[in-house]
Design a protein around this nucleic acid. Structure first.
Length: 829
RNA sequence: GCCUGGGUGGCGGAAAAGGUAGACGCAGAGGACUUAAAAUCCUCUUCCGGUUAAACCCGGAGUGCCGGUUCAAGUCCGGCCCCAGGCACCA
C-alpha cells in the first residue's frame, strides 16, 4: 500500500458527500429507539465554538449509540423567529425572512462540514407557516381551556428591544438578550397559565433526580418557589374591612405588632384618604413607583403610616398600618403582618420607626428579652406570650393555630408560589401571530381552525419603536369576526420565541405531518427525548417552558408522557484567555478557520479532548495542533500496519500484549459512553494505546511473528471503528483503505454503521499484578504477585524484597494490612 | 445574604468505590535524522535538599488553609479562605 499524506480537506468533502448521497443517518420508526437531541440554534449568521462543542458532544454519543444498535433519532433545525432578524432588517433594509433564510443556508453548510450525523430529512424551521400553524392551533386550544388568557398589568419592558419580557427573561434586573435595564409598563398582555402547573412542575423534578444536573433542578425548584403557610385576615379599625396576609410563620402571630402594605396595594390610598397622613402616603407611593421604574431599589427599609390601624385578633392590639418599600405586591397578598422580634426586615423597620417589638418564640435553651435583641430571632423555638399556644414548639403551633383560625373563620392553610404566569405577548414583527381577533360585539375570538395559519404579512414597516409593526398593515389588521362575521381587528402581538422552542422536539418525530402538530404514533415511538444536550443558560427559561408545554399537551390529549427530556447534559462554555469567547473581548475563534486549517476531525477531537463536557473549555491553538499531530500519527501508523498485515494471515493468540492493550482501550471508551461521557479520558486512552503500539512496532524492528500479525490485523480492523465517533471522516477513509487488505471490512460500506466492538474481559484479565508496598503509609516498593494470591504468600514475597527489608530492619511490626489485589501496608514502630 | 459548583505541576486536565498523586496532551529542555529548515522520532520535565563523573541513587515536602477520622485522605468529617455561576427584601 503506497503511503499518502493525511489530507483532511479532500477526505472530509468526500465522505460528507457520500453520507449524504446514501442517507446514512436517516432513520425510520423501527427497532430500539434512542432520541438524542441538542438544543437547536438561533440562526444568527454563523455558528460559533459553543455550537461546535454542543453538537460535537452530541454527535459522538449519537454515533456510538448508532453503532451500539440503537435506532437513533438525531435531528437538527432552526429556532428561526426572533429579534435579531428585525434589527438586521432595520439596519440593512433586508427582510427578516430573507436574512433568516440566508443565515440558515450558511449555517447548515457549516454544520454539515463538521460531519454531524443528522437526519437532515427532518430539518425544521420555526418561522415556516407549516410549523407555527400548529403552534397557533395549540394556542387556541389553550385559550379555550383558560390556559392562555389576557390581562392588564404591570409588565417588564425592555426599552432597547422595545418589547415586553417574561419574568424568566429578566436576569438580575436586565434584559436576558441585550442587557439593558428593564423598566415597567402597564399593558394588556397575553399570558400562559404556567402557575396552574406549579405543583406538578415542582413534583416532576423529583423524577429527574440523578438524570438532570443537580444545579438545574435546584434552580427550577427555587424559581417555582413553593412555600407552605397560611392566609389570615386582620380586621381594620372601625369596620373598614379586613387586610389579608400570607405568612409561613403563623406561630409568631402573637408577636405581630404592625402591618406593612406594598406601595401598589389597592388599600393604601383608600386608608390614607382623609387622614393627616394622606399627602405623605401619596408622596411615598409615587416615589417608590418612580424608583422601580428607573430600577433604583435600596435595601434600606422605609415606610410611612397610613393613618389607620387594624386589630390583631389574637391579642386584641391595635396594629398601625404602614406602607413599606420592601413589601412586594407580586408575592402573597401584598400585605405582611410584621413580627419584628422574629423577622429581620420587620425588626429593622420597627427600630427605625420606634414600633413595639415583642418576643413570642424563644430558643430551646434561653429566654430572649426585647431590650437585649440586636437582631430578630428567626429560628423555630418554644412559644411564649401566645395565649393557649404558649409552650408549644413552633412546628406544632403552626398546625394548631391554623386549625384555630379556620374554626374562627379568620383564615386557612395555604401554599404560595413565586412563579408567575408566562407573559407571551411581544410587540414585534418576527414571531408567530397570536391567532385571535378582537370583535366589538363578541370580544376576543379565536381564529377558526380551518383559517389557520394566520400568516405573517410580508410588507411591514419595522421601526423598532415599541408598537407592534403588524399594526401598520391594514390588510392584516382588518378582518371579520369568526363568530358574528362583523368587522373586527386582528391581534397584532406575536408570541414569545420561547413558545416555538417549547415543543419543537415533538415536531421532529413527524416533520412532514400536514394534518396535526404531529403524528401521535410516531411521537409515541420516539418521545420522550432520551438525552438532551445544551448550555446551562437555559436552566430555567427554555427547560421550564418545555416541561410546562409537555404537561399541557398531555392534558389536551396529544401525548401521554409527563416530562420531555429524560436526561440532560449541560455543557460548559468555551473560554479563551480566561474569558468567554465573544466579539467584545476580541477572542473569537471561527470554526471555519479551524476546519480550513486542520479539518473538522481535528477540531472535534480537540473539543472532546480538552475537558469533560460539563466543564468550561479553555481554547488552545497549540492544543488543537496536538490533536492534529495525533491524527497524523494514527494515519501513518495505520498505513504502516496495513503494509505489515497485507501479505500474511497470522495466528491467533488471545493474550498477546497488543490484544490486551487494545481490549483495555475498547473497554475504557465503552465505559465512558455508557456512563459519564468524559471523552477526554476516552481519547487519552486511544493515545496511550497508540504509544504502546508504536513502541511495540519499534521494538519488533520489522520482524513479526504470526501472532503479531494476527494482533495487528485486529487493531487495523477495529481502530477506525473506535475512533469514528470522535473523528468520523478520517475513520471512514481508513476503513476504505482497510477494505483493500481485509475481506471482512467489505461487508460494511461505512464504518459509521459498523457495530461497536465488544471487549473480551478474559483478554484483559491479568495473571500477575503489581502490588504497591507501603511502610507506614509511604510507598517503598512494588512486588509482582499472582492475581488472587493468598495473603500469607503476598507478605512472604514483600518481606523477602530487599528494597522493602531495608525499612524493616530492627523494627517491630505493629500491623499488616493487605487489600486483596490492591495494596499492602506494613506498620512499624 | 442564601443556594450550587470548583480550587491538583508552567498550562488543559487524570486519579469512577479511601489504596502507587500528576495518566494523556500542551509548553519547555536535551538529543537523533538533515547541508539547513520544516516534519518526524527518542529522552527528561511537581517542588526542595543531599550523594555523585552523571545519575535511571538517597532523603524530605506536596492536591486552597487549619484541624480530625483511618494502617492509609486529592477523595470522608468539622471550621475557614478564595474563584465562578444562580437567586436575591419571597413575609
Amino acid at each position: 500500500m503506497e503511503f499518502r499524506g493525511y489530507n483532511p480537506k479532500e477526505i472530509e468533502k468526500k465522505w460528507q458527500r457520500k453520507w449524504e448521497e446514501d442517507r446514512v443517518f436517516y432513520v425510520k420508526e423501527e427497532g430500539k429507539k434512542f432520541y438524542l437531541l441538542e438544543m437547536f440554534p438561533y440562526p444568527s449568521g454563523k455558528i460559533h465554538m459553543g455550537h461546535v462543542r454542543n453538537y460535537t458532544i452530541g454527535d459522538a454519543i449519537a454515533r456510538y449509540l448508532f453503532m451500539k444498535g440503537y435506532n437513533v433519532l438525531h435531528p437538527m433545525g432552526w429556532d428561526a423567529f426572533g429579534l435579531p432578524a428585525e434589527n438586521a432588517a432595520i439596519k440593512h433594509g433586508m427582510h427578516p425572512a430573507v436574512w433568516t433564510k440566508n443565515n440558515i443556508d450558511h449555517m447548515r453548510k457549516q454544520l454539515k462540514s463538521l460531519g454531524l450525523s443528522y437526519d437532515w430529512s427532518r430539518e425544521i424551521s420555526t418561522c415556516e407557516p407549516s410549523y407555527y400553524r400548529w403552534e397557533q392551533k395549540i394556542f387556541i386550544e389553550m385559550f379555550k381551556r383558560g390556559l392562555a388568557y389576557r390581562k392588564r398589568g404591570l409588565v417588564n419592558w425592555c426599552p432597547d428591544c422595545a418589547t415586553v419580557l417574561a419574568n424568566e427573561q429578566v436576569e438580575g434586573g436586565v434584559c436576558w438578550r441585550c442587557g439593558s435595564p428593564v423598566t415597567f409598563r402597564e399593558l394588556e398582555q397575553w399570558y400562559f397559565k404556567i402557575t396552574a402547573y406549579a405543583e406538578e412542575l415542582l413534583q416532576g423534578l423529583k423524577t429527574l433526580k440523578g438524570k438532570w444536573p443537580e444545579r438545574v433542578l435546584i434552580m427550577q425548584e427555587n424559581w417555582i418557589g413553593k412555600s407552605e403557610g397560611a392566609e389570615c385576615s386582620f380586621p381594620i379599625e372601625n369596620g373598614e374591612g379586613v387586610i389579608t396576609v400570607f405568612t409561613t410563620r403563623l406561630d409568631t402571630v402573637y408577636g405581630a405588632t404592625f402591618m406593612s402594605l406594598a406601595p401598589e396595594h389597592p388599600l393604601v390610598i383608600k386608608l390614607a384618604e382623609g387622614t393627616p397622613c394622606e399627602s405623605a402616603v401619596k408622596n411615598f407611593v409615587d416615589e417608590c413607583l418612580r424608583k422601580r421604574l428607573i430600577n433604583k431599589e435600596t435595601t434600606e427599609k422605609e415606610g410611612v403610616w397610613t393613618g389607620k390601624c387594624c386589630i390583631n385578633p389574637f391579642t386584641g392590639w391595635k396594629m398601625p398600618i404602614y406602607v413599606a418599600n420592601f413589601v412586594l405586591m407580586e408575592y402573597g397578598t401584598g400585605a405582611v403582618m410584621a413580627v419584628p422580634a422574629h423577622d429581620q426586615r420587620d425588626f429593622e423597620f420597627a427600630k427605625k420607626y420606634g414600633l413595639p417589638i415583642k418576643v413570642v418564640v424563644n430558643p430551646i435553651d434561653k429566654f430572649l428579652k426585647e431590650e437585649d435583641l440586636e437582631r430578630a430571632y428567626e429560628e423555630d423555638g418554644i412559644l411564649v406570650n401566645s395565649g393557649p399556644f404558649s409552650g408549644l414548639h413552633s412546628a406544632v403551633a403552626r398546625e394548631k393555630i391554623a386549625e384555630f383560625i379556620k374554626e374562627k373563620g379568620w383564615g386557612r392553610k395555604m401554599v404560595n408560589y413565586k412563579i408567575k404566569d408566562w407573559g407571551i405577548s411581544r410587540q414585534r414583527y418576527w414571531g408567530a401571530p397570536i391567532p385571535v381577533v378582537h370583535c366589538k360585539n363578541c370580544g376576543i375570538q379565536p381564529v377558526k381552525e380551518e383559517d389557520l395559519p394566520v400568516i405573517l404579512p410580508e410588507n411591514v414597516i419595522i421601526s423598532g419603536k415599541g408598537e407592534s409593526p403588524l399594526k401598520s398593515v391594514p390588510e392584516f389588521v382588518k378582518t371579520s369576526c369568526p363568530k358574528c362575521g362583523g368587522e373586527a381587528e386582528r391581534e397584532t402581538d406575536t408570541m414569545d420565541t420561547f413558545v416555538e422552542s417549547s415543543w419543537y422536539f415533538l415536531r421532529y418525530a413527524s416533520p412532514d405531518e400536514h394534518n396535526a402538530p404531529f403524528d401521535r404514533k410516531r411521537v409515541k415511538y420516539w418521545l420522550p427525548v432520551d438525552l438532551y444536550i445544551g448550555g446551562i443558560e437555559h436552566a430555567v427559561l427554555h427547560l421550564l417552558y418545555a416541561r410546562f408545554f409537555v404537561k399541557v399537551l398531555r392534558d389536551l390529549g396529544y401525548i401521554d408522557f409527563d416530562e420531555p427530556f429524560l436526561s440532560l447534559l449541560t455543557q460548559g462554555m468555551v473560554i479563551k484567555d480566561g474569558k468567554k469567547m465573544s466579539k467584545s473581548y476580541g477572542n473569537v475563534v471561527e470554526p471555519d478557520e479551524i476546519i480550513e486549517k486542520y479539518g473538522a476531525d481535528t477540531g472535534r477531537l480537540f473539543i472532546l479532548f480538552a475537558s469533560p463536557p460539563e466543564r468550561d473549555l479553555e481554547w488552545s491553538e497549540q492544543g488543537v495542533e496536538g490533536c492534529f499531530r495525533f491524527i497524523n500519527r494514527v494515519w501513518r501508523t495505520f498505513f504502516n500496519i496495513i503494509n505489515i498485515i497485507k501479505s500474511s494471515n497470522g495466528i491467533k493468540e488471545e493474550r498477546h500484549e497488543i490484544m490486551k492493550a487494545f481490549h483495555q482501550t475498547i473497554k475504557r471508551i465503552t465505559d465512558e459512553f455508557d456512563s459519564r461521557y468524559h471523552f477526554n479520558t476516552a481519547i487519552s486512552g486511544i493515545m496511550e494505546f497508540l504509544n504502546t503500539l508504536t513502541s511495540f512496532l519499534d521494538r519488533k524492528n520489522g520482524k513479526f511473528e504470526p501472532q503479531d500479525i494476527f494482533a495487528l490485523k485486529e487493531v487495523a480492523y477495529h481502530l477506525p471503528i473506535i475512533l469514528s465517533p470522535f473523528a468520523p471522516y478520517v475513520s471512514e477513509e481508513m476503513w476504505s483503505i482497510l477494505k483493500e487488505v481485509d475481506e471482512r471490512a467489505k461487508a460494511y460500506p461505512y464504518v459509521s454503521r459498523h457495530p461497536w466492538p465488544s471487549y473480551n474481559p478474559e483478554i484483559i484479565a491479568e495473571e500477575f499484578i503489581n502490588i504497591p508496598v507501603q511502610v507506614n503509609g509511604k510507598l517503598r516498593g512494588i512486588i509482582r504477585v499472582k492475581k488472587d494470591e493468598e495473603e500469607e504468600e503476598v507478605f512472604r514475597i514483600a518481606f523477602s524484597d530487599p528494597k522493602i527489608q531495608k525499612y524493616l530492619v530492627e523494627k517491630k511490626i505493629l500491623k499488616k494490612v493487605y487489600q486483596k489485589n490492591k495494596i499492602l501496608n506494613i506498620v512499624v514502630e
